Simulated scan of single mutants.
Amino acid sequence: MRLVTFNILHGRSLRDGQVDTGRLAEAIRRLDPDILALQEVDRAQERSHHADLTDVAAAAMGAVDQRFVPALAGTPGAAWVPAADPDDPGTAGYGVSLLSRHPATAWRVLRLPRIPFRVPRTGPHRWPQRLAPEEPRVAVAGRFATPEGPLTAVSTHLSFVPGWGQLQLLALRRALAAVDGPVVLLGDLNLRGRQPERLTGYRPLGRRPTMPAGRPDHQIDHILLRGELGPVRLVDNPEMELSDHRPLVVELGARRG
């Protein structure tokens, strides 16, 4: 089983500043995931040609089940409101996705604790430009029927604000505590090093730097496991033609016994 998490920067390339859905599709085909977690995903946004980027990824990997969950409705960095449940699929949105080549038997949306104050937003030269509301944060969990048995996978993107990512991760751990069987948590956690495993008690399946994409020197994108799956056979962080992150890839063998 091949697990991948990738913050796609809404499909934009840092080389030319463009969003090319064909380039995104080729990246997903190259990654060849069985379960794919995406972050910073657009739906019906002008900047990404009004495409549904989850659909683009699903077609590229041959997903049989998929779910896009917007964190916000409207335009990131401009006019937006927190996304509502249930989501209106005709509304422009921005959030996270979870896709699988294995059929889903259940889905769950988890809205994470939100920062109640404005936070500094940085410009291209990294100094604070203005104070703005922090974007809402969300997770999507799917339970999948895999050849190894039932597996719960979760895609999320946590806050970059110090302390709040940790708070959101602890809330996510509590929400998943009652889930039976193995749980895989995938996403851009905005937490470095061993913080995610220390906060959750989950086991990291791969250690590779994922930021910045050109010359990565630290890891904020993680794949963590609670429970048991097959042995890790491969860990990779290939450079792609898009995003400011590298994806994290973990390939698992069959469970012994």
Rank of each mutant, 00 (worst) to 15 (best):
L53I: 10
R2M: 08
R101V: 04
E46A: 07
H49L: 09
V138H: 08
A104V: 08
F117A: 04
G93A: 12
Q195E: 06
M240I: 14
R208G: 13
V96F: 03
P86A: 02
I220W: 01
S13W: 03
T152K: 09
T152P: 00
L53Q: 14
L176G: 06
Q129M: 11
W80D: 06
V69S: 05
Q129G: 12
Q129I: 08
V96M: 12
L24V: 14
P182F: 00
A106Y: 01
A84L: 10
A37M: 07
V41P: 11
P238M: 01
A175H: 12
H125I: 05
R111D: 07
L189S: 03
E26P: 04
M1H: 08
A51Q: 14
G253D: 05
Q18T: 07
P120L: 03
E239T: 11
V161P: 15
L3P: 08
A104S: 14
D20C: 07
G77F: 01
A79T: 13
P103E: 00
A58R: 04
G90C: 09
R130T: 15
S243R: 11
R207E: 06
L176I: 03
P103Q: 04
G165P: 06
P136D: 01
G253E: 07
W80C: 01
V250D: 03
L98W: 02
A25Y: 15
W164K: 09
R207L: 07
L185S: 04
I8P: 11
L36A: 00
Q195I: 09
E135T: 15
E134L: 10
L158H: 12
D16S: 10
G201Q: 13
D55S: 13
E40I: 04
Q168G: 01
V232G: 09
A78M: 08
Q219V: 01
P86N: 05
E148M: 11
F117M: 12
F6V: 03
L110I: 03
R233W: 03
F160T: 05
P124L: 13
P212S: 06
G201P: 12
T146N: 07
D244G: 03
E241T: 10
L189E: 00
Q66D: 12
A73E: 10
A37Q: 02
A57K: 06
L3S: 09
V183H: 03
G206K: 10
A84T: 10
H222G: 11
G253V: 05
D188I: 09
L252H: 09
D221P: 15
Q195H: 13
A51F: 10
A84V: 08
V19Q: 02
